[in-house]
Simulated scan of single mutants.
Amino acid sequence: MLSHFQFKPLFTNKNIPGWNISFYYKKQRFTGIYHQTGKIEWTTNPPAQEDIETLTSQIHELMLFHVYE
């Protein structure tokens, strides 16, 4: 499970979609860019391949709850 999830807009004009995200998973910090399409562009070392699908799903749910609500 990921923890300490944070996000902030990429652009000063908050109507333009795109967010910087950061979180901890398995005691390691990850950062990335969450695009409006749900695609995540990792800006640090990406998580292990077997964890990417699970993390992408969890991040998408968090973004739906916090941003699109």
Rank of each mutant, 00 (worst) to 15 (best):
Y68A: 07
H66Q: 15
Q28Y: 03
E61C: 12
F30N: 13
Y24F: 13
I52N: 11
K39R: 06
I16S: 06
M1I: 07
I21S: 12
E69T: 07
E61R: 13
T56N: 10
K14H: 08
G18W: 02
Q58L: 12
I40F: 05
I40Q: 11
G18I: 01
F65Q: 15
I59E: 13
F5Q: 07
L62V: 02
I21W: 09
I16H: 04
F30D: 14
S22N: 10
I16W: 00
T43D: 12
N15S: 14
N45I: 07
H60W: 07
G38P: 12
E69K: 10
E41Y: 02
R29V: 12
W19R: 06
L55C: 04
L2C: 01
F30V: 13
P46K: 15
A48E: 08
G32R: 02
K39V: 03
F5N: 03
Y68P: 11
F7V: 00
V67K: 09
E41Q: 13
V67Q: 11
E50R: 13
L55G: 02
H4V: 00
F65R: 15
Y25T: 02
K14W: 00
I21L: 11
K14M: 03
F65E: 15
Q49E: 13
G18F: 02
K39A: 04
T54R: 09
F5L: 08
P46A: 14
F23H: 08
P17Y: 01
T37A: 06
E61L: 12
E53Q: 08
Q28P: 07
W42V: 05
K27E: 15
V67L: 06
Y34C: 03
K8W: 00
Q6L: 10
T31W: 00
N45W: 01
K14R: 08
Q58V: 08
Q36P: 10
S57R: 05
T37G: 04
N13S: 06
T44D: 13
I59W: 06
S57P: 09
K26E: 04
E53Y: 00
M1L: 06
P17F: 01
E69A: 06
T44L: 11
F7W: 09
W42P: 15
T44C: 12
K27V: 10
H66I: 01
N13M: 00
N15K: 14
G38Y: 01
I52L: 12
Y34V: 05
R29Y: 08
S57I: 00
Y24E: 14
L10S: 09
P9W: 01
E69W: 00
F5C: 05
T12I: 00
K14T: 11
L64I: 06
G32L: 03
S22T: 07
G18Q: 09
V67D: 06
H66Y: 14
K8Y: 00
Q6H: 13
Q6F: 04
H4D: 15
P47T: 11
D51A: 03
H35W: 10
I33G: 08
T12E: 04
T12A: 03
E50Q: 14
H35M: 12
F23A: 07
Q58A: 14
T54F: 10
P46S: 14
K26D: 07
